[in-house]
Design a binder for these strands. Structure first.
Length: 626
RNA sequence: GGUCCCGUAGCUCAGCUGGAUAGAGCAACAGCCUUCUAAGCUGUGGGUCAUUGGUUCGAGUCCAAUCGGGAUCACCA
C-alpha cells in the first residue's frame, strides 16, 4: 500500500468521525516541506467551515483524534493551519522492504491508447525538431505502458505530394544515376540533397520573374495569377515593413508557380496520381533509399512502431465522411462545389473539407484516417505527437469528428510541443541552420568521448565496450536534455556548446546509477542483506530517501495522465541528486552497525532500480560502470 | 485584426489539484579525494515570478487588461 494513499484514507476516516459533512470535503494533502519535521501535511484552512474553529485549532483537533486511532503516527506539529504528520520510522522501513517500483494501475482509462508520432516527409532527412517529436512519442508510449495501458505506436509517413516530386525531378535532371551505394551517402541525405538542389534551381528561374512582377510586369503569369498578382501588387505599393514582406512572400509564391520547374513538378505529381509506370518506379526507388536512411536513424534513437501508415495509401480517405456529413446537414456545399463546415459557433472559422474540384485536403485525409483507425483498433485515446503550429488543425479535427457524431473523438489528444530554437532564433533550411539528426547524434557521442577522456578515468577499458559507453552517455545527454523540458514550451538548443554532462543532465543520473552498481558489487557477501527494522531509530535523511522512492508510482501516473514525460525526467534527477547527498553523508560498506548497513544497501539497490526504470521510460540506457 | 501558446536568477529550466521563507543546473567565487566512482558533495553571491488591477484566509499558479516573444487563421501538407 502506498503510504500517501494509506494516510489519506485514514485521515478521511478521522474526518468523517469528527465532522458530519466531511464526506465531500476535498483534502489538500501534500508532502511536507523539507525544512519542517514531518512526512505529509494536511492543509486545514479549507476545513474550518466543517469545524467552525480557527485553522490551527482545527488542525489540533484532527491530530488528536487521528492519534487515538493510529499507532503509525510518530508525531505531529501544527504551524498555522498546517498539520504536519510524521509516520514512524518503522513504518517507512517496512514500506521500503515491499517497495518494488511498480506503478499502481491507473483506473482512468484501461482501453488501449494509440500514439502517432514521427510523421516524417520522405524528401529530406530528420532534423532536431523530429528528434523532439520522436523522443516524446517513444517516452509517452513507455510511460503509458508503465501506467498499465496497452499502447499502439503508429507512424504516418508523408510519402507523396509535390515535395517528393521536387526531389525526384532534381535527381532526374542532374542526378546522373547517383545512388546511396555510388555516393556513399545515407539514402535520406541523398534525397535531401536533391531537394535542396531543386530549390536552388527554382530560385534561379523564379527570381527574374519576381523582379518583373515587383516592377509591375505580370506577363509571365497566366490570367488568373496575373489578376491575383495585380491585387497584391497594388496593396504592396501602400504597405511597408512586415506587411510588405508578407505580400512579397505571396508574390514570390506566384513567381515560383510560374516557373518551368514548378510546372514540371506539378506534371510529375499528375503522372504519379495517374499511376504512370516510370514515375511510380522512380518514386518507389527514392522512397526506399529514404526509408533505409530513416531506419538507421530510428534504430540509433531507439524509435520503433507497431504500424506504419503511408499517406500514399490514405490520402483518398475521408471523402465518404464528407458525403455523410452533407447528408446529416453538418456540412454544406458552396456554389462552386467546395464543401465546408461552419465552426463559428465554436469560436473558429469556416473550414474547407473538400475542394471545388472534388479533391481532398489535409483535413479530409486526417478525418478519414482517424475513422479508419478507430474501426481497426477501438482505442480509448488517440494521441497525436505533432508540433504546436498545428494546434488549430487538431482542434478542428476533433470538433468535426464530434459533429459528425463520433463520440470516441473525445479521446483525441494533440500532444502539442514547442519548437526547438537555436540561440540565433528559428532553424531555417534556407539559411542552412537546420540541425541534422544524424549529425547531432554523432556530435553528442563525440562530445561524450572527449569529456570522458579529459576526465582521464573510467571503469571500462575494453575499446568496444568504451564505444558502447560513449554512445550511451551521449544519447542520454541528448535525450534527457530534450525530455526534461515541458513539451508545450519552446526550448533553446545550443549546438555550439554541445551538451553538458554535469548537473541536471542524463549522464549525471547515469553516473549515480553506475556508482550504486559499484557499491552493490562490492557489498555482495560483505553486507548482510537482512536487517531488523526494530533496531533502527528515526533518521531524517533515510526517511527522505524512502519518501522520494515512494513518489515513483504517482509520478509515472501523473506523467501518463498529463502526457508529460518531463515529470519523469525531473523525478529521476531529484532522486539521483538526493542519493548523491546521501552517499556522501553515509557509508554503506564501512558502516559497522549491520542493521544500518543493510538498510542503506537496500536503499541503494532500490534507488538504482528506480533510476533505471525511470530512465528506461525516457528511452535512456544505464551503464553498469562508467 | 480574430484565436491559441509562452514570459520565473546573466543563461538553460523546475515549481503537482491555489498553500508555509519561489527552487535546481550552468556560469562566477570559496572549500572537500590515504575513506563505497570528485561525471560527485558543501558553501557564497545572484529574483519587482513581464506590468497593472481583481478574486480570497492565502496568488508564480485563477480572472481581466496591457506589454513583449511565438504560432495559426490557405481550394499547401
Amino acid at each position: 500500500m502506498n503510504p500517501e494513499q494509506w494516510l489519506k484514507g485514514k485521515l478521511k476516516e478521522t474526518l468523517t468521525k469528527l465532522y458530519p459533512n466531511a464526506a465531500d470535503a476535498a483534502l489538500v494533502f501534500q508532502p511536507t516541506r523539507k525544512d519542517v519535521e514531518g512526512d505529509f501535511t494536511l492543509v486545514c484552512f479549507g476545513l474550518t467551515k466543517l469545524s467552525g474553529k480557527s485553522p490551527a485549532d482545527t488542525a489540533r483537533e484532527i491530530a488528536k483524534a487521528f492519534q487515538e486511532d493510529n499507532a503509525e503516527l510518530a508525531g505531529h506539529s501544527v504551524i498555522n493551519g498546517f498539520l504536519n504528520i510524521s509516520l514512524t520510522f518503522q513504518f517507512w522501513v517496512n514500506y521500503l522492504q515491499q517497495f518494488g517500483g511498480n506503478v499502481s494501475a491507473s483506473d482512468l482509462n484501461q482501453k488501449p491508447v494509440m500514439i502517432e508520432y514521427s510523421s516524417p516527409n520522405t524528401n529530406k532527412p530528420l532534423h532536431l525538431g523530429h528528434v523532439r517529436n520522436n523522443l516524446l512519442g517513444v517516452s509517452m508510449a513507455r510511460i503509458a505502458e508503465a501506467a498499465g495501458r496497452k499502447v499502439i505506436k503508429v507512424n504516418l509517413v508523408n510519402d507523396r505530394g509535390i515535395h517528393i516530386c521536387k526531389s525526384m525531378l532534381a535527381w532526374k535532371h542532374s542526378g546522373k544515376g547517383e545512388t546511396p551505394q555510388s555516393s556513399g551517402l545515407k539514402g535520406d541525405h541523398l534525397v535531401g540533397k536533391y531537394y535542396v538542389e531543386f530549390d536552388k534551381a527554382l530560385k534561379a528561374q523564379s527570381d527574374p520573374i519576381l523582379q518583373a512582377i515587383l516592377a509591375g510586369d505580370f506577363s509571365a503569369l497566366d490570367e488568373r495569377q496575373a489578376e491575383r498578382a495585380s491585387i497584391l501588387w497594388n496593396k504592396l505599393q501602400q504597405s511597408e515593413g512586415e506587411k510588405a514582406d508578407e505580400l512579397k512572400g505571396e508574390l514570390k509564391m506566384l513567381a515560383n508557380s510560374a516557373t518551368l520547374l514548378m510546372k514540371e513538378a506539378q506534371e510529375m505529381l499528375r503522372l504519379w496520381e495517374a499511376g504512370d509506370n516510370d514515375t511510380i518506379s522512380l518514386w518507389k526507388q527514392m522512397n526506399a533509399w529514404v526509408y533505409e536512411g530513416f531506419e538507421q536513424t530510428y534504430r540509433r534513437m531507439g524509435v520503433s512502431f507497431d504500424k506504419i501508415y503511408y499517406e500514399s495509401e490514405t490520402y483518398l480517405l475521408g471523402k465518404q465522411l464528407v458525403d455523410e456529413g452533407l447528408q446529416k446537414g453538418v456540412l454544406f456545399r458552396k456554389e462552386d462545389g467546395s464543401v465546408w463546415i461552419d465552426l463559428r459557433n465554436e469560436g473558429l472559422d469556416e473550414k474547407l473539407l473538400l475542394r471545388s474540384d472534388g479533391t481532398s485536403v489535409y483535413m479530409t485525409q486526417d478525418l478519414g484516417t482517424a475513422v479508419q483507425r478507430h474501426e481497426e483498433f477501438k482505442a480509448g485515446n488517440y494521441v497525436y505527437v505533432v508540433g504546436n503550429e498545428q494546434d488549430y488543425h487538431f482542434k478542428v479535427l476533433k470538433l468535426v469528428l464530434l459533429k459528425l457524431g463520433y463520440s470516441w473523438a473525445e479521446g483525441l489528444y494533440h500532444l502539442s510541443y514547442g519548437m526547438v530554437d537555436l540561440p540565433t532564433g528559428k532553424m531555417k533550411s534556407r539559411e542552412g541552420t537546420v540541425v541534422d539528426a544524424d549529425d547531432l547524434m554523432d556530435e553528442v557521442v563525440a562530445e561524450a568521448r572527449k569529456k570522458s577522456e579529459e576526465l582521464g578515468k573510467t571503469e571500462v577499458s575494453d575499446s568496444a565496450a568504451l564505444a558502447g559507453l560513449y554512445e550511451q552517455i551521449g544519447m542520454a545527454a541528448l535525450k534527457y536534455f530534450i525530455l526534461k523540458v515541458d513539451p508545450k514550451k519552446r526550448m533553446v538548443f545550443n549546438p555550439a556548446e554541445s551538451i553538458d554532462i554535469n548537473g541536471n543532465t542524463g549522464p549525471f543520473i547515469q553516473y549515480s546509477y553506475a556508482r550504486i552498481q559499484s557499491i552493490l558489487r562490492k557489498a555482495h557477501g560483505v553486507v548482510n542483506p537482512h536487517y531488523d527494522a526494530q533496531a533502527l531509530t528515526n533518521d531524517k535523511q533515510h526517511r527522505l530517501m524512502i519518501r522520494t522512492l515512494e513518489q515513483y508510482s504517482p509520478t509515472v501516473q501523473a506523467a501518463a495522465e498529463s502526457y508529460n514525460p518531463s515529470l519523469v525526467a525531473n523525478y529521476a534527477y531529484e532522486l539521483a541528486k538526493l542519493f548523491n547527498q546521501f552517499y556522501h553523508e553515509f557509508s554503506i560498506l564501512k558502516e559497522e552497525d549491520s542493521n544500518w548497513a543493510s538498510l542503506r544497501l537496500e536503499l541503494a539497490r532500490k534507488t538504482g532500480e528506480t533510476l533505471k526504470a525511470s530512465m528506461a521510460l525516457l528511452g535512456i540506457e544505464m551503464p553498469e560502470r562508467m
